[in-house]
Design a protein around this nucleic acid. Structure first.
Lengths: 248, 248
DNA sequence: CGATAGTTTGACACAGCTCAATAGGCGTGG
DNA sequence: CCACGCCTATTGAGCTGTGTCAAACTATCG
């Protein structure tokens, strides 16, 4: 018989094969670990370690030798690039269950820094290289994430190069909103979320100054399109109007 | 005996195994086809076709179903994104022997357009999918190109978001110069090249207007850092000074 | 030789930057 | 409990870099 109970039981049995560390880990479902067999997960988890870091922690230093990779389990990580005189640009924003690190190269071209409290599951570089040879599916998942990041980077290039300040800020809010709720879009239903970035980070993300970001947020608030509580919490009253402000 | 003659002979014999189309093709050396065996090349080349297109030809339309992929054999291809009101941004620039097309997705998020006279070697989508399953090395090469494109995109994001007009134009000239001659950098030796883009394209690339690009080029010319002949031909007198102007 | 496309140059306007002051939130210590 | 300092965000006033609009110049081609 195949009742709900027996299915649950079987899944339990199956679950017992996978490492404690990995059970209920999002990276195993939507992340790259989904490509691994139970045995591979066991092997990888032996070399893995979880850690929780606070906002502002540097995770990868630019041009530094990379000795480990990570999965993001919760929180937000910003990838930045900096000019000699200190001007900074955020070039990527990653959330759970994204994979963090650049395969094939032993030095990173970007800095990675926790934007919020973030928990990570890290494993040594060598372990990934081995797994990738064993599992073409793993390589494929990493490839697909890289392509997603490339699509996102190009979308931002359009925003950085061709949108004005108001459109940039609206586009940023949409980006975060979509990350929270990939479904709802055209609906008039309210959508609320916490910004994972400070005003300074948002400015670095959009190629603006803190002051301009603040002014544009105020404009959106005055227009009744959003409301802001405690600086970080945003309630979007009307998604369609926000989309209209984003310059499409 | 292993004289130069016998080595040449052996290479000739080996060459005879590979399709006529592929002999002396750059994509077989530095491009993705280098991952394929002689038999695979034969199979792929049967489904491939070369074509030469003029500047301005649209190669991939945004959101259109992608039925083929290509290698760029010569010329330059610009990848663009456009807003509803016509504002345009170049989000990628590709040269021989780059691979053109987005694996795994059946629709492109960008437009691709020939910037100069360009020759391509195209093959159907299905052929690539099959090859990629057969050859992990091919997948890896495509993966590495995607990562290179991602690095380039992020470098441009820094330029778009944080550099001023003068630095942007200098950075663009450096980008092209490096593409022509990846070696020479700090040297004082002159470096000359033709721009693959019109002023309008350069403006779309840098998030500027045609007028600003023109003014900044004039400034570089007046400073004696570059000289310009026939609008398109650039001679960089002193690379170090150009680097200094690029904001690092 | 006129037509067209691409580029340069000039004059002016304004979006967003800079500098500066004010306000709010939060923890620490009296 | 308030006072204080610290950090972040907001708001204001003025300035400047880059966009806009317009005209002139150049090269190429029929």
């Amino acid at each position: 018989m195949t009742t709900a109970a027996s299915i649950l039981e079987r899944r339990d049995i199956h679950n017992s094969d996978i490492p404690v560390l990995c059970r209920s880990c999002e990276a195993r479902h939507r992340g790259v670990c989904g490509a691994l067999s139970a045995e591979q997960l066991v092997a990888l988890s032996k070399a893995s370690s979880r850690r929780k870091v606070e906002a502002g922690s540097e995770l990868i230093a630019n041009a530094e030798a990379v000795d480990h990779y990570s999965n993001i389990l919760s929180g937000a990580v910003k990838l930045t690039k900096t000019l000699a005189d200190g001007r900074q640009q955020i070039v990527g924003l990653q959330f759970a269950p994204d994979f963090l690190g650049r395969p094939f190269h032993d030095a990173s071209a970007v800095n990675a820094e926790a934007a919020t409290v973030t928990s990570l599951c890290s494993f040594p570089r060598s372990a990934l290289a081995r797994m990738m040879n064993e599992s073409p599916d793993l390589q494929r998942r990493l490839f697909e994430q890289a392509l997603r990041e490339l699509d996102e980077a190009r979308e931002w290039m359009l925003t950085l190069g061709r949108k004005n300040a108001g459109e940039k800020v609206a586009s940023f809010l949409l980006l975060i909103a979509r990350n929270i709720d990939p479904g709802d879009e055209t609906g008039n239903g309210e959508l609320a979320f916490d910004l994972p970035l400070t005003r300074a980070d948002i400015a670095d993300f959009l190629g603006l100054t803190i002051e301009t970001v603040s002014r544009e947020l105020t404009k959106l608030r005055s227009s009744g399109i959003i409301s802001i509580e405690h600086n970080r919490h945003i309630v979007v009253g009307n998604m369609a109007r926000l989309v209209a402000r984003s310059g499409s």
